[in-house]
Design a protein around this nucleic acid. Structure first.
Length: 572
RNA sequence: GGGCCCGUAGCUCAAUUGGUUAGAGCAGAGCGCUCAUAACGCUUUGGUUGGGGGUUCGAGUCCCUCCGGGCCUACCA
């Protein structure tokens, strides 16, 4: 039994996330959290919404609502969807929480005490009509290079040339279209990451077994050009964590907030405090997960994220932690993911291309999506969602291999022996071989899950399901029954126990179907098995059960074609 | 422009980090079974590992080069 702290990258508050976002961190994190709990570990699984920044302010304005109201509504929507996908967060927090405000200000104060904060005066584009400073990519104009008239201030999408906003010809605000722009002087706080470069480098070198994707991104930032650069941690916005030095005001920074990348990862910690506060627990309850001097020395901390988030988790957030000079818990293992593409292109939030979380749940239950997404997780390279592949996987793996196994066993038993585990007979060589095979597969499954090898875990689980069908075909209880009902009873008794075992082992992937199986079997014991032989003896002769409805229905060709057409274009 | 990643069977992916004859699932073909959601099982077809060159006793794996795809490049978050 160990203590495992798990965080998923926190999704941005703005809008409903698509399946690519889901499989890029939250879903595999949930798989691991469920597995870790099932193995008897003490788990703290944290996620939250990332609520600050310019896009949230603009989306709220567009919706005609105060930002705080808009974020509260969107948080509720995202929370409902995460529940719908059975994401088992211990806390789904909010980066705008008072807890995060205080903690972010606290860290900033510590960094300042340690001489790691510098005030830098810089020039930024200000839009008079919008009454706000504009990030580079919110300025549009004509590209001086290729003449494209919708080039953004950071880069021209047409010729891919990197730009400075002042390079643009006829620049205008992407928010309002106003050309009333001016360059204004503004003062910001910078985190002096460059002074922590060697410490960060040594820390990353000390990590064992991190994916290439993770370390190569970190190394690039550390060593490219002049090495790790200092970064601004404040912004001229209204919505965010007000800049304060711990509990003290920060002179000259009165109207500024911290920049999202600084406060968002701190929310991992703050959300754990949100959890403790909501549970009515005192501070030691969350600090024992995060403070090495207050009980977190035996915690293993695993982070899940998409590859775009790696620099913040390998460098920026560790810089905050290390720079504080206090014994806060650093991450032990980072699991990063590539992207999921949609039917030959990218998922697109702006174009509504692909399947979004709400739409997915409207057409099929969570387990169908969980199974496909997890068994196709983009671990080694980008993966691709196609409706043909989705239909084939769901129909074959879930309906035919697992669902049909449950169906054939329970219905055969009901018709020959009634709705109770039959007694009589005994296992022989075939049953011993099956048990040994499953024991070996269980060990492999656990190995892959421990290593967070998601696709390999799924393949091994499927192989265990398939082993049940192979066994049944060989044992042929329908034929044996005619000559030797006791022997057929022994085969079916084992098969019913196999269903219970599958329910337990499959729960991290398909929690709802697992629950249905356990309920049908009236099984009270859902403990993770140490010994397969013992686990296949859990339901004794005479134990009642009921035949469940089919666990999974099949996706028809007509449905597939309809969905393919419906989700190809603009979200309605 | 610079950096990194990827390219393996019709499709989705493996290959113990340089080690026998490159393996699974799906799809296809054949056979079997009849308990079950026309489900299940067995057998089987299918590869110049993107092209070319090199290092090595040995290369999918390392090096060079070309082709194709993707990501990042610090003010989106």
């Amino acid at each position: 039994m160990a203590r495992i702290l798990i965080t998923s990258a926190i999704p941005y508050i703005n809008g409903i996330k698509h399946l690519g976002n889901l499989v890029g961190s939250q879903l595999p994190a949930d798989l691991y959290a469920r597995y870790a709990r099932a193995r008897g570990n003490e788990v703290m699984f944290i996620c939250a919404t990332d609520e600050h920044g310019t896009p949230a302010e603009l989306a709220a304005a567009k919706a005609g609502k105060p930002v705080a109201d808009y974020c509260a509504e969107m948080w509720a929507v995202q929370k409902e969807l995460s529940d719908g996908f059975r994401l088992s967060f211990d806390k789904f927090g909010r980066s705008s929480s008072p807890q995060n405000h205080r903690l972010t200000q606290y860290f900033a104060g510590k960094l300042a005490e340690n001489g790691l904060i510098e005030e830098v005066s810089e020039k930024q584009v200000y839009s008079v009509a919008d009454g706000r400073f504009l990030p580079d990519r919110y300025i549009e104009g004509t590209c001086p290079n290729c003449g494209y008239d919708r080039a953004r201030g950071d880069q021209c999408e047409n010729c891919t040339k990197q730009l400075d906003p002042t390079d643009l010809i006829d620049p205008r605000s992407a928010v309002s279209g106003s050309t009333d722009l001016e360059v204004r002087e503004t003062k910001h706080l910078y985190l002096r990451q460059s002074t922590l470069k060697d410490q960060l480098d040594a820390w990353i070198d000390g990590q064992e077994g991190w994916p290439i994707l993770t370390t190569s991104i970190a190394k690039k930032w550390l060593h490219d050009g002049d090495g790790l650069q200092d970064r601004g941690i404040t912004r001229d916005l209204d919505w965010g964590v007000p800049v304060r030095k711990g509990d003290e005001p920060w002179p000259g920074m009165e109207d500024k907030v911290f920049y999202v990348w600084f406060d968002a990862p701190i929310e991992y910690i703050a959300a754990t405090k949100e959890w403790a506060d909501a549970e009515g627990l005192d501070d030691s309850a969350w600090r024992r997960w995060w403070r090495l001097d207050e009980g977190a020395d035996d915690v293993r901390y695993v982070q899940f994220m998409g590859k775009d988030n790696v620099p913040f988790h390998t460098l920026s957030f560790p810089a905050t932690i290390i720079g504080s000079g206090e014994p806060w818990k650093l991450v032990d293992y980072i699991k990063s993911f590539n992207y999921l593409n949609y039917d030959g292109g990218q998922f697109s939030t702006s174009q509504g291309r692909g399947v979004f979380m709400d739409q997915a749940l409207a057409i099929l239950p969570a387990d169908y999506w969980r199974w496909w997404l997890l068994s196709h997780t983009p671990e080694t390279s980008d993966a691709e969602f196609t409706w043909e592949n989705f239909q084939a996987s769901v129909n074959k793996d879930l309906a035919d291999v697992l669902g049909n196994f449950v169906s054939r066993v329970t219905k055969f038993c009901r018709s020959r022996f009634g709705e109770a585990v039959p007694g009589g007979g005994a296992g022989g060589a075939r049953e011993a071989a099956l048990t040994a095979d499953l024991q070996a597969r269980l060990t492999a499954y656990e190995g892959h899950m421990d290593a967070i090898e998601v696709r390999k875990s799924a393949a091994e689980l499927r192989a265990m399901w398939a082993a049940g069908n192979e066994y049944l075909q060989e044992a042929a209880p329908w034929a044996v029954f005619k000559e030797d009902p006791d022997q057929a009873a022994a085969i079916i008794r084992l098969s019913l126990n196999l269903i219970r075992l599958y329910a337990v082992l499959s729960a991290p992937f398909i929690p709802d179907a697992s629950a249905t199986m356990l309920t049908a079997l009236k099984a009270e014991d859902a403990e993770w098995p140490d010994d397969v032989g013992a686990a296949l003896d859990a339901l004794p002769a005479g134990h009642g059960f009921s035949v469940p409805e089919n666990l999974f229905r099949k996706i028809s060709d007509e449905e597939r074609e309809e969905w393919q057409a419906r989700f190809a274009g603009v979200r309605s």
